[in-house]
Write a protein that binds this DNA or RNA. Structure first.
Lengths: 138, 138
DNA sequence: GTAGACCTTGCCGTTGGCGGCAAGGCCAGA
DNA sequence: TCTGGCCTTGCCGCCAACGGCAAGGTCTAC
């Protein structure tokens, strides 16, 4: 199949596929007129890439999975390098969740303090009725 | 004070300060030789910007706070626009935490499945002893 | 007078993952 | 033969928040 069909089938664009090729993730043989020709196997590769991207892996992160598939494995995560990417990403995600958690706490604190304090120009108490209703908790 | 001193005091760089100026966040009067001259008030502005950036706000997000301070308020979050930024950011952070949570679950599931399955080339069970020790839980 | 520390503007580079557009080649159907 | 739809390469643009570097002006100290 040609690049347009592969893009449609994989739910992506020809630009993305060409870009994957420049990154060495995808390869295509060329037909006589210079058009790229793809096999079903390439569809699987693109599917894998897209799936992993959807989880938040970078293109570079998907490389071991692609190579694993190309090496003949049934699934892209049957290789140690892929497992390692999973673990790295997991640690990264955990760290990110932690950071966001403290950011959330900080934001909640600041929001509460700001709603508590009056909007007056000098921090002096003025009339501040009916404002603390939009505070979020959870 | 001049830009270098302000940068040092605020723990940032002259490049950043000049950039803030191009973005309309900072203004400086110029001395006779063309050098930027800053007041203590500007130091407060930069402090506010940096503090908010540290929480994850974008430069653009800090604009209402800066304007609030410039309007004469004691703290940058004494204005409705600033409060709104807090709330937007909070919602954003909450959404991000949720997404990361499901990403984490997906990663854990995939990792577990991958460690469960053998690394053989055809998904056929082979010798896979002593591999499932690095799985993370929490 | 000269070294060195500061300041100015301006323009390009970074990171990721493409999108847009140009200028052209290829091929099928009416 | 012409239209329309596919394909090719290549280059610039985007988003944020600056960093690096160039090429020069300014002020102070020795």
């Amino acid at each position: 199949m040609r690049i347009g069909e592969l893009a449609r089938r994989a739910g992506t664009t020809t630009r993305a596929l060409r870009f994957y090729e420049t990154q060495g993730l995808l390869r295509a043989r060329r037909s006589a007129n210079g058009y790229r020709e793809y096999e079903d196997e390439d569809f699987r590769l693109v599917e894998e890439i897209r799936t992993l991207q959807a989880i938040g892996l970078s293109l570079e992160d998907t490389r071991p999975f692609v190579e694993c598939l190309r090496a003949g494995h049934e699934s892209g995560d049957s290789c140690d390098d892929s497992i390692e990417v999973y673990q790295c990403k997991l640690a990264e995600v955990n760290a990110c969740i932690d950071r966001l958690g403290s950011v959330r706490a900080t934001l909640l604190a600041k929001l509460a303090a700001a709603l508590e304090a009056p909007p007056g120009p000098c921090g002096v108490a003025e009339s501040t009725a009916g404002r603390a209703s939009t505070t979020e908790e959870s």
